[in-house]
Simulated scan of single mutants.
Amino acid sequence: MYAFIEGKISGINPAEVVIDCHGVGYDISISVNTYSRIKDLETCRLLTHLAVKEDAMVLYGFASEDERQLFRQLISVSGVGAGTARLILSSLTPEEVTEAIILGNVPVLQRVKGIGGKTAQRIIIDLKDKLGKGQGFREILGSTHNTKKEEALSALSMLGFNKALAEKTIDKILKEEGTSLTVEQLIKHALRIL
């Protein structure tokens, strides 16, 4: 119904923003990610999604199309409502959520308050194929993943560790922690295990 709302920010907190659009104040629910991108602005343009329930109509706002699309994908999963989807996008960046889903990383999704193992698995099963095809994410993820992995593997080999064992360890860390770790963090995690 509303594609976007653009106007002056008349009130903002990490959960919602009020945008004055030609004298009409729109109360829009936002994620922490969107808040961090618009908190210092005087005016903004938010892409929106209107959620209609039996007892309320809630307007959700997003600073980027990627975040809005991910929100819409998340609410398409049985058992994930708009509030839960916003909580997921407040706890993790859209990139971290997409990465966790594509890699099947249940523990990352379970870090979000209120997301249990079954819900995390349902999100992964329902969205893995849909998100894996989108916007070349696999290529981006793969190149970052491989570069960090190769650098960490090279460093561990120079330190005298068995290459095959180091590679298994790095793969395990990347699967559990995701690719948001820096090369240094990856090496430190590996050294604790090796």
Results as ranks from 00 to 15, higher is better:
residue 106 V to R: 02
residue 116 G to K: 14
residue 106 V to N: 06
residue 127 L to N: 01
residue 130 K to N: 11
residue 101 I to H: 02
residue 141 L to I: 01
residue 105 N to K: 03
residue 139 E to P: 00
residue 129 D to A: 12
residue 136 G to T: 00
residue 135 Q to W: 01
residue 99 E to Q: 08
residue 163 K to F: 14
residue 124 I to N: 12
residue 171 D to I: 09
residue 84 T to W: 08
residue 149 K to R: 15
residue 162 N to P: 01
residue 117 G to W: 12
residue 131 L to F: 03
residue 101 I to M: 03
residue 167 E to V: 03
residue 93 T to S: 13
residue 106 V to Q: 05
residue 174 L to K: 10
residue 132 G to L: 08
residue 150 E to V: 02
residue 134 G to E: 02
residue 150 E to M: 08
residue 136 G to H: 01
residue 127 L to V: 05
residue 164 A to Q: 13
residue 89 L to Q: 09
residue 162 N to L: 09
residue 97 V to G: 01
residue 154 S to A: 10
residue 105 N to A: 07
residue 106 V to P: 07
residue 111 R to I: 06
residue 157 S to P: 00
residue 122 R to Q: 14
residue 129 D to T: 06
residue 87 L to Y: 05
residue 158 M to I: 11
residue 139 E to N: 02
residue 149 K to V: 00
residue 84 T to A: 11
residue 107 P to Y: 04
residue 155 A to Y: 06
residue 115 I to K: 10
residue 133 K to M: 05
residue 135 Q to I: 06
residue 124 I to R: 13
residue 165 L to I: 15
residue 113 K to N: 14
residue 92 L to K: 05
residue 110 Q to T: 07
residue 118 K to N: 12
residue 141 L to S: 03
residue 95 E to Q: 04
residue 112 V to E: 05
residue 131 L to I: 13
residue 116 G to M: 07
residue 128 K to P: 10
residue 145 H to C: 06
residue 115 I to E: 13
residue 95 E to M: 05
residue 161 F to E: 10
residue 173 I to K: 11
residue 113 K to H: 09
residue 145 H to Y: 09
residue 136 G to A: 07
residue 174 L to V: 09
residue 143 S to C: 01
residue 122 R to M: 07
residue 81 G to K: 12
residue 132 G to M: 06
residue 101 I to F: 02
residue 83 G to M: 12
residue 87 L to I: 08
residue 127 L to Y: 02
residue 137 F to V: 03
residue 92 L to Q: 06
residue 101 I to T: 09
residue 111 R to G: 15
residue 130 K to Q: 13
residue 88 I to M: 15
residue 107 P to E: 04
residue 97 V to D: 00
residue 163 K to L: 09
residue 134 G to Y: 06
residue 103 L to W: 00
residue 113 K to M: 05
residue 98 T to A: 10
residue 108 V to S: 08
residue 164 A to R: 12
